[in-house]
């Protein structure tokens, strides 16, 4: 298995050149980070190069790295999972949006049509704009929804709730009346935890 991954990594370096980041093998998967300006061209080559031939874009999703422990870097990334049916291998491609306040990356809808809804979803949930997408509407949230709910600074219970108002005889929006409650706190252990030979 690992021989195959090495072959994929060699091929990636050969085809994409040194403008892209170093491909990383971890847990039996290959990840490559591509700078935003080379993204579209590199993706096209990933599909069309006969030695790589990633025919399918299985998934594309946004991610907000702002609260990742020990992370310093760009906040938003669009991450694609590519699959080659010909060579039977997978690749994960990361592209970081250069501007944290107005994240924009190129759309790969022209290369893989399946990107259409994935990019709409990433736009809806993370507010990442995909340049060149011809129908960038919200996908999952309500008509007229404000904000991007999967960003880390968006509260889990949201800002507004909907109810039927018997006086006005219609459905209205109002500020949420519930408060987020955390039963189990989020904990990240130091690396030395439980390894000191103590009672751990």
């Amino acid at each position: 298995m690992s021989a195959k991954l090495d072959r994929l990594v060699r091929q990636l370096k050969e085809s994409l050149g040194d403008r892209v980041g170093e491909p990383v093998i971890a847990l039996g998967e290959v990840t490559v980070a591509i700078p935003a300006e080379d993204y579209l061209e590199a993706m096209r080559r990933l599909r069309d190069d006969p030695a790589l031939r990633f025919e399918q874009l299985m998934d594309l999703s946004g991610i907000d790295y702002s609260e990742y422990t020990g992370y310093q870097g760009k906040r938003f990334a669009a991450v694609s999972q590519l699959l080659s049916i010909t060579h039977n291998w997978r690749l994960r491609v990361k592209v970081f949006a250069p501007d944290d306040d107005f994240p924009v990356v190129a759309s790969v809808m022209e290369i893989w049509n399946s990107a259409n809804w994935y990019e709409r979803e990433a736009f809806d949930l993370f507010g990442i704009h995909f340049e060149g997408h011809d129908d960038l509407r919200r996908l999952l949230t309500d008509y007229g929804f404000v904000g991007h709910p999967f960003r880390k600074d968006f509260p889990i219970s949201g800002y507004v709730e909907m109810r039927y108002d018997p006086e006005q005889k219609r459905v209205i929006y109002q500020p949420v009346t519930i408060e987020p409650r955390e039963v189990t706190p989020r904990i990240v252990r130091e690396e030395t935890y439980a390894k000191g030979g103590g009672r751990g």
């Binding site: 998934d59 422990t69 992370y71 989020r186 904990i187 990240v188």
Partner: peptide
């Protein structure tokens, strides 16, 4: 696709 930063969540 699961991303972990070492936490319990």
């Amino acid at each position: 696709w699961a991303v972990s930063d070492g936490a319990n969540k």
